[in-house]
Write a protein that binds this DNA or RNA. Structure first.
Ligand SMILES: Nc1nc2c(ncn2[C@H]2C[C@H](O)[C@@H](COP(=O)(O)OP(=O)(O)OP(=O)(O)O)O2)c(=O)[nH]1
Ligand SMILES: [Mg+2]
Ligand SMILES: [Mg+2]
Ligand SMILES: [Zn+2]
Length: 573
DNA sequence: GCCGTTTTCGGCCCGACTGTTTTCAGTCG
């Protein structure tokens, strides 16, 4: 018996899907991907399902995949995958990532020219060997070389918080055009996914040709990938791809629904439609018998006509939202306006850039009723952490300020570091006088799952800790979560009535959406904190709330939706 | 390979754009 994580198993299934696609097998790739997707978001270790003989309870897992899962869990290996790998060199799988190249082209290159790696492909394209194949020409070679170069240079997805302002600016530029009646961001940005592959924009106009000309000639556009009457793709700086879809007013709802996705959500909806002998596309919901349009102008009509409650974009990931919408069981999601305060911000007392006064002022202007100053404690030397006497000094400064500001309450706090043994780096007789104590890990990430979990559980048992900061430690595009039994942390949080953070810093979003989703099985609260190091940082609260919404959270699950009075009661302040 | 308040077998979302093609396959959204 070997231990293989859910994520690893999911990746094996994704790989099978890719290889089957190369092989030209139909439908199975989707089946494997669906199973893989569901396994990767499972809250429990897949071993549990195995032990209870319930593998087939996992959506998308039937007899055949269940058997394969058993083999992986028992032996750590899978014969079926090993055999597939023998037929297709690794390079082929890698080449699938190059834009414009799919299984058909790559297999042709492999079988007729023996191309089995990106390097070989480049060579062949440069030497004019590709154009000798039927169905390919000079332009194919030129495109391959260009896309191959981009593939080598750019591999990462964009971070939502970094791309949103750029996307909103593009949205504005388009809406400024006199022939554009309406514009909307769509795709993963509208669903507020934590990372973004490209910017998808929908525009309404009855003069699409003019819009496309305007769009593809915007100054920031480096390259036009494709340009048509209703759809164009361009590339801006840093390889930022932008897809623009232009449609008529009467299709706005169905087009926005289509372009917002997710793909899996779309397929599910379209299947529902076809069950009723209707057809759903970006052009509308159409009755196939009468060819009459049932809905199309507004998104809500589409959902309602299909017998569903309206589903907000953040939920459209095919994680059960369609079933819930059918039975009227969609959650009453937390909203931006439900947030009453921020319980984790920094100042220039440690590594923040603004004074306490400045950030309190900003928070008050945002309408917040409370704010907790939680600068780093001393052991975080790179962040100029506070020692005991500085903490004391800051506390008295904060209490002075608190008296001056009438409409906002300022709490004294600290972001203490959790050391390797799970102890906080601030003495208890200091901690006892602070309102908010955050415990966070900022070093020593490389522990075993057991060691790391114990370390955090120890910290959670500290008498004065209020909340656990960025619980998994992941940094988008930089660092994976530490090895951690998050369910154990959830259990302890419930037992000790401890709060876990949803850190809204754009690179963190930690807990993430899936973690939030799974946290609903446990009875503890989450605090959405910005961890702001600048005044602007307070605005990241929106990202945190979006993440919570993607995790199906309602306001009852979130600490900082409580009124000042209720918050104090809850934290015994 | 999976799945079913119409199915346990026969389906599996639907459409735009490109390059190379005289009518469409491949790839992508
Ligand atoms: N019906 C249908 N819609 C699709 C398909 N592929 C993409 N879409 C729709 C849903 C997507 O959200 C939307 C934009 O496509 P993208 O490839 O940009 O995906 P998305 O933005 O969701 O994710 P991304 O962060 O860009 O990788 O187009 C598909 O195969 N079928
Ligand atoms: Mg996209
Ligand atoms: Mg796109
Ligand atoms: Zn912090």
């Amino acid at each position: 018996m070997s231990h293989v994580s859910n994520k690893k198993i999911a990746n094996l299934l994704f790989e099978i899907a890719d290889l089957l696609e190369l092989k030209g097998v139909q439908f199975k790739p989707r089946a494997y991907r669906r199973a893989a997707q569901n396994i990767s978001t499972l809250s429990k270790d897949i071993k549990r399902f195995y032990e209870e003989k319930k593998l087939q309870d996992i959506e998308g897992v039937g007899e055949s995949i269940a058997e394969k899962l058993e083999e992986i869990i028992e032996t750590g290996d899978l014969e079926y995958l090993n055999d597939l790998r023998k037929d297709f060199p690794e390079g082929l799988q890698e080449m699938m990532n190059i834009q414009g190249l799919g299984p058909k082209s790559l297999m042709k290159f492999y079988e007729e020219l023996g191309l089995d790696s990106v390097d070989h492909l480049e060579e062949a394209a440069k030497n004019g060997e590709i154009r000798k194949l039927e169905g390919f020409g000079k332009t194919s070679e030129k495109n391959i070389l260009e896309n191959l170069e981009r593939y080598r240079k750019y591999k990462k997805r964009f971070i939502l918080g970094e791309i949103l302002p750029i996307a909103k600016n593009l949205e504005k530029q388009l809406s400024n055009h006199e022939d554009v009646k309406r514009v909307n961001l769509a795709g993963s940005i509208r669903r507020r996914k934590e990372t973004i592959g490209d910017v998808d924009i929908l525009a309404v106009s009855s003069n699409p040709k003019k819009i496309m000309d305007y769009f593809t000639n915007l100054p920031e556009i480096e390259r036009v990938v494709s340009k048509g009457i209703t759809k164009s793709t361009v590339i801006a700086q840093e390889n930022l791809h932008i897809d623009l879809r232009v449609i008529e007013e009467e299709s706005f709802g169905s087009a926005l629904q289509y372009f917002t996705g997710s793909k899996e959500h779309n397929i599910e909806l379209r299947t529902l439609a076809s069950d009723k002998e209707w057809k759903l596309s970006e052009y509308g919901l159409i009755d196939m018998k009468t060819t009459k349009t049932i809905a199309g102008k507004e998104e809500k009509e589409i959902y309602n006509s299909l017998g569903l409650d309206y589903i907000v974009p953040e939920l459209r990931e095919n994680r059960g939202e369609i079933q819930a919408a059918k039975s009227g069981d969609l959650p009453d999601l937390i909203k931006k306006g439900d947030i009453v305060g921020d319980l984790h911000v920094h100042t220039n007392w440690s590594d923040g850039s603004q004074s306490i006064d400045e950030i309190v002022q900003t928070a008050q202007n945002m309408g917040y009723k409370y704010l907790a100053i939680c600068d780093h404690a001393k052991s975080l030397q790179i962040a100029d952490g506070l020692n005991d006497s500085e903490i004391k000094k800051q506390m008295s400064e904060i209490s002075k300020l608190d008296k001056i500001y009438k409409s906002i309450t300022v709490f004294s706090g600290i972001e203490a570091n959790i050391d390797k043994k799970g102890k906080l780096d601030v003495r208890k007789n200091i901690l006892k006088d602070l309102d908010i104590v955050i415990g966070s890990i900022h070093s020593g990430f490389k522990l075993s799952e057991k060691e790391m979990t114990n370390r955090i559980v120890n910290a959670m048992h500290n008498d004065y800790i209020t909340l656990l900061g960025h619980p998994t430690g992941r940094l988008l595009n930089q660092r994976e979560s530490y090895n951690l039994d998050l369910n154990k942390i959830f259990e302890i949080a419930e037992k000790l009535e401890l709060v876990l953070e949803l850190n809204a810093y754009p690179q963190r979003l930690d807990l993430n959406d899936i973690n939030c989703f799974n946290s609903r099985d446990y009875n503890f609260l989450i605090s959405i904190n910005t961890d702001a190091h600048t005044k602007d940082g307070l605005k990241n609260m929106d990202l945190g709330v979006s993440t919570a919404r993607r995790g199906w959270l309602d306001k009852g699950k979130v600490l900082n939706t409580k009124s000042l009075e209720d918050l104090k009661k809850h934290l015994n302040l």
